[in-house]
């Protein structure tokens, strides 16, 4: 996986992770212990948890592998700084180029996040990378098409989703360009550059080796995220949540929270949003469909494998503020 020389920090974070998993298990056991040992296996809630948990992992698996292989190939075959030469120098052009990248490579976040560290190492500016992470899962033809079909009678929702995602990512990119000076990557990957991949034969082995390393590196966050999503889907009722906030202000925040918790793929969340169409405003639905794919439980865990916690926190807070404000504007100006 990664480098032990990265001081002593990992030690603590893994102990914390272990403690969290243990706590989760104690919680499961506690809940299930009400029902005798025989009933545990038959308990429908265990079935729901298991099915959601395994389902998310199975669904993510191909895209994760695409991402880690892309990353490994980039690392081994693409010369450093090549991407720097391809991305326009002008930050605004660079950010716009990064937003359009999603149209060319329609990848979801499970594929983008593993590749992004390599892209940054290969010279992609951090502001362009941040833009790509945020907008890549939304601004692509598949997502537009699925949103458009789910809200057939209201095409403004599909346009609003695309537009807001683009603007939010653009602003975040500019803020990162202006204010983030230090390297936001976690340090541990840097020593990779010491290696010399000279022989063709070894290069293939190197691709395999890197891909497997990264699979475990990213995979553990996905497994952990899927576990939490499974628990939430089992024990938290979507309808109860939805009935919490119907007023315009709280509704938008609530739907953002729901998007965060559910961690759905951006191509499938439009149909879930559709089931809320009778009780929520267009702005709240767009909040769900813009915030969810950008910032969600599974994704944030994956991002924190690549970026320093401070940088992830910055991204999350920026997106929270911008999406919330943006959907308000949408509600009052465009979707009246």
């Amino acid at each position: 996986m990664h480098n032990e020389s990265a001081v002593r920090k990992p030690q603590r974070s893994y102990a914390n992770g272990l403690a969290l998993v243990c706590l989760a298990f104690i919680a499961i056991l506690y809940v299930l212990s009400d029902y005798g040992p025989g009933a545990i296996i038959a308990d429908p809630r265990l079935q729901i948890f298991k099915t959601v948990f395994v389902s998310i992992i199975l669904e993510t698996m191909p895209f994760l592998w695409i991402g880690v292989f892309l990353s490994a190939i980039l690392h081994v075959y693409v010369p450093d700084r090549l991407i720097q030469r391809m991305i326009p120098r002008n930050p605004i052009l660079g950010i716009i180029a990064a937003s359009v990248l999603g149209i060319v490579f329609p990848l979801c976040e499970c594929g983008i996040v593993p590749a992004i560290r390599r892209l940054i190492n290969k010279g992609m500016p951090v502001y362009a990378a941040s833009t790509f992470i945020l907008v890549g899962p939304i601004l692509n033809p598949l997502v537009f098409w699925s949103t458009f079909t789910a809200f057939r009678g209201r095409p403004e929702i599909a346009y609003g989703r695309m537009g807001l995602a683009f603007i939010v990512a653009l602003i975040v990119g500019l803020i990162v360009y202006r204010f983030v000076r230090s390297n936001p990557l976690r340090v541990r990957e840097n020593r990779d550059h010491e290696h010399d991949h000279s022989h063709e034969n070894n290069k293939l082995a190197a691709v395999m080796g890197h891909a497997i390393n990264e699979f475990f590196d990213m995979g553990k966050y996905i497994v952990f995220g899927a576990m939490i999503v499974g628990l939430l889907q089992t024990f938290v009722s979507q309808t109860d949540l939805a009935s919490l906030g119907q007023a315009s202000g709280s509704a938008n925040a609530l739907m953002m929270g729901l998007g965060f918790i559910l961690s759905l793929c951006s191509t499938s969340d439009a149909f879930v949003a559709q089931s809320f169409v009778t009780s929520f405003s267009g702005g709240a639905l767009i909040a769900f469909m813009v915030f969810g794919p950008m910032i969600n439980l599974k994704g944030v865990l994956m991002m924190s494998a690549v970026f320093k916690t401070k940088f992830v926190a910055l991204l999350v807070s920026l997106v929270v503020i911008l999406v919330y404000a943006g959907t308000f504007v949408l509600d009052y100006v465009f979707l009246k």
Binding site: T51, L58, E59, S146, T267
Partner: peptide
Amino acid sequence: THCIADIS
């Protein structure tokens, strides 16, 4: 649509 997480 995709997987169990999004069934409705």
